[in-house]
Design a protein around this nucleic acid. Structure first.
Lengths: 206, 206
DNA sequence: GTCTATAACCGGATAGAC
DNA sequence: GTCTATCCGGTTATAGAC
């Protein structure tokens, strides 16, 4: 790699990210990627050992900054963040990630429960999830841990559904949906999800 | 097809359903399917013209009864169902569908926004969505149509996330999750989502 | 209707020259 | 580090015998 031009490795990552986001992991061949990146096919196996590990590299490169931003937003809300602030810190950095690539890419992971992809994702996510769980516990006292677990997944589900379907949504919506509406969408989600978190818990099971 | 044994066509549908649910549409080859069904490879292209149309047939066969059950539950709740009854009618028939196959299968569709699969799904779903939207409008007055649209998608997202991740969840959960807990899960979701639907709407945008 | 056989092609991976 | 050439197995789909 010369100092002046973008390295082969980066070009591969960029191309793979774009195509994975657009068409999914399985539907994207290494040949598609090398064509897009204008590099040689063998370069992929040289820099990354296999397609699987390339997928992992693509995910990690983008997920890490998003997770850092989530934690930063949580910290920025002070020592006792409101429920709304916590929910926003969890979803906004994801939904507002660069839309052409990053957000759909993240959406692909949870929708494609390919064993190894989920594993990579989970490794990146575990510490973040713990921090948020603690924040939720403090902000909404009285919710048992297992209920918190499910509610965090309801939240994650609403979020990833938006990521996965973002480009199909305009076809389904009764009204025009513009890309610029993403901040508004975040606000809608925050209200909906915060109310859900505040729902009364179930009485002891029958 | 003899009268006594299960026909080739049905055996193909059964096998395809099982493998699609387990491994996804792309990851499942016609050879996998014919091996599982113990029929000849060519039989697939005889009975269904292509893999795509086989996928469509598999989806429609299972989605139709689920949607009928949803509408039946909605009707059974009387002329003025509560919000909780509406949410339950929407999610319970899906989440309580035969888990080994049907539920994960439905989860695959929305998670794999393959153009044609979404199209098939949407065709089956459109009239149901309209009925539910009307019910929501009646049960929670004062929510504008576009807000209802988004909230129904938040609900659908939480639901499909559970479908897609059901078999991975045990690995993530801090407590044991048993298959029998599905009715309990439905109740948890109903409370969370109903509270979300009742959340105050956003004031005019800033 | 159901089979065998095969066409025609695409996938990931690697050996070895430069 | 980057190329060419190639291996080899898997993919959908179909032609034609039975």
């Amino acid at each position: 790699m010369t100092a002046a031009s973008v390295g082969t490795k980066t070009r591969i990552l960029d191309a793979a990210e774009k195509l994975f986001a657009q068409n999914g992991f399985e539907a994207t061949s290494l040949r598609d990627i090398t064509a897009e990146a204008q590099v040689n096919l063998a370069a992929v196996n040289y820099h990354f050992q296999s397609k699987e590990s390339l997928i992992g590299a693509v995910i990690v490169r983008r997920l890490e900054p998003v997770n850092r931003r989530r934690l930063a937003m949580l910290d920025a809300a002070g020592p006792a963040p409101t429920l709304e602030q916590i929910v926003e810190a969890f979803i906004a950095p994801v939904l507002e990630a660069e839309m052409p690539n990053v957000a759909p890419l993240i959406g692909r992971v949870f929708s494609n429960p390919a064993e190894f992809a989920v594993r990579v994702f989970k490794e990146e996510l575990a510490p973040v999830a713990r921090r948020f769980d603690e924040a939720f516990a403090a902000a909404v006292p009285g919710i048992p841990p297992d209920e918190r677990f499910w509610r965090m997944h309801f939240m994650a589900g609403a979020m990833t559904h938006m990521l996965a379907l973002w480009d199909v949504i305009p076809m389904l919506a009764p009204m025009p949906v513009q890309p610029g509406d993403r901040r508004e969408l975040v606000q809608r989600m925050v209200r909906f999800l915060a109310a859900g978190f505040r729902a009364p818990i179930m009485e002891a099971k029958d």
